[in-house]
């Protein structure tokens, strides 16, 4: 039974996209992943508008004081089991904003992050690979 559930989680990761204050570069690449050229619906990945439906929070941009409570709230609204993927240099470590008076650093300062996708911005291929890495992690996890 747990094998079937684990399989279904790997096969149908629904994502929600949140920009925590980056420059929109990563967001454009993430949206490109969803276009017909890359067609991630092949892997069952769908973009959902509400955190209640989503399994994976795809977050771009640095963790800063302004966004801390908001992104934490979105994370809390997602039903378990949930995962966070940090996309781009800002979400990993704060990137170019690191050391600013209002920047806390990467997204892992706010919530647990399962996978990191480096790049400024990462290519759509890299984002797909990151999601594949997340799926691989899920496969081993159970």
């Amino acid at each position: 039974m747990s094998k079937i559930i684990n399989w279904s989680r790997r096969t149908s990761p629904w994502i929600i996209h949140f920009n925590a204050g980056g420059c929109n570069g990563c967001d454009i690449e993430l949206v490109a992943v969803l276009t017909p050229r890359f067609d991630v619906e092949r892997f069952g990945i769908l973009l959902k508008g509400t955190p209640r439906h989503a399994d994976v929070l795809m977050v771009t941009g640095p963790a800063n004081l302004q966004i801390r409570d908001r992104v934490r709230r979105i994370y809390d609204q997602m039903p378990n089991p949930k995962f966070v993927v940090a996309i781009g240099a800002c979400a990993i470590s704060g990137g170019i904003f690191r050391g600013c008076y209002n920047t806390l650093g990467g997204m892992d300062e706010i919530m647990p992050v399962t996978a990191y996708i480096p790049g400024c911005p990462p290519r759509p291929d890299a984002i797909i690979q990151g999601v594949a890495a997340l799926i691989e992690k899920l496969r081993k996890g159970d």
């Binding site: 559930i5 399989w7 279904s8 989680r9 096969t11 069952g44 399994d55 378990n80 089991p81």
Partner: peptide
């Protein structure tokens, strides 16, 4: 897969 996943969430 979508249905099983939603039921298990």
């Amino acid at each position: 897969a979508d249905t099983i996943k939603l039921f298990s969430k």
